[in-house]
Amino acid sequence: MKKLSLIAFVPFLLSTFLPIFSANAGDYPDRPISIAACYPPGGGVDRNLRMVERVASKYLGQSLLPQYKTGGSGTVAMQYIKAASPDGYELAICDNGGAIIAPIAQGLDLGAKDFTPIAQVSFVPWIMTAGANSGYKSMDDFISAAKASDGKMAIEISDIATSDHYGWLLLLKEAGISPSNFKWNPHGGGGPKMRAILAGEGDLFYDDAGEIEGYVKAGELIPLAVASNSRLAQFPDVPTMKELGYNVVAGSSVAIYGPPGLPADMVSVLQNAMNEIKEDPALLKAFELTLQDPTTFVVDEFAEAYENDWSNAGELLKAALAN
């Protein structure tokens, strides 16, 4: 029977991996805080969550317990956090695609007021990029072609109403060009989008520096402009859209949210911890390894950017979806 009890022990062992909650009263936080990731383990959201989680207990006094509430392009976790009780023990982490853009695209009853923004962990700007054989050598080439386009000019995007699509819409609004001048090809993700460009089936797309760096060096892709406040270290010669006269900052950001109505004292406990976490040497090292810019870990200024994104995205995406 000894062997049998050994086998029976395995499920018990597994169950210890699952979260255990205690219910003692005391100062916040007095028990682990669960944090719902909006995508499955393995992607950028998860990676950022793990980096923060690794060092969080040092500054919070309690650990963060990662949970995975995936699905609906990220909106499942966001709807979950909207409905969660604002006791400070339920948070969510998601990118702007799942937290803001997908809810608008799906017509869900979610808005800026439904979450409490805590901190933006990272931001990776989009770079407008063209295939080497596309004929586009600069942002001006693109703009003049775009103005003359009759709706046949194609742009490769991850999907309709995703954060790269939104980034294009912001630029077109600034440039005064109608989105209906283009054919938007949805590929279902960054990888397939890149594939189409490399296979010569598409000309223009947005991607981040890490993804395109090798191909730019190989001469297969040409970066035209960066949608960030300042030039990137990897591409010092590529101008920002702002320099070219288009006030566009767009990219993929990962942020932590609380439920609506989270008491201000709890928010400040969390934000104080985040301000310390972003200076932690282990976190900085992890950012360096994953090619993320630590200055994009923003706590105090995040709420404003969050409100702006909601109002801009709402307006632009609804118009784009109506087409």
């Binding site: 499955p40 393995g42 090798g214 191909y215 060096k217 297969e220």
Partner: peptide
């Protein structure tokens, strides 16, 4: 540098974390 599924995506992020950027 195009991962097809979550397994290869995880391997790729492990490679990137080591400074090995998949690609040409």
């Amino acid at each position: 540098g195009i991962p097809g599924d979550i397994v290869t995506a995880i391997l790729m992020s492990a490679l990137i974390a080591q400074g090995l950027q998949p690609g040409p």
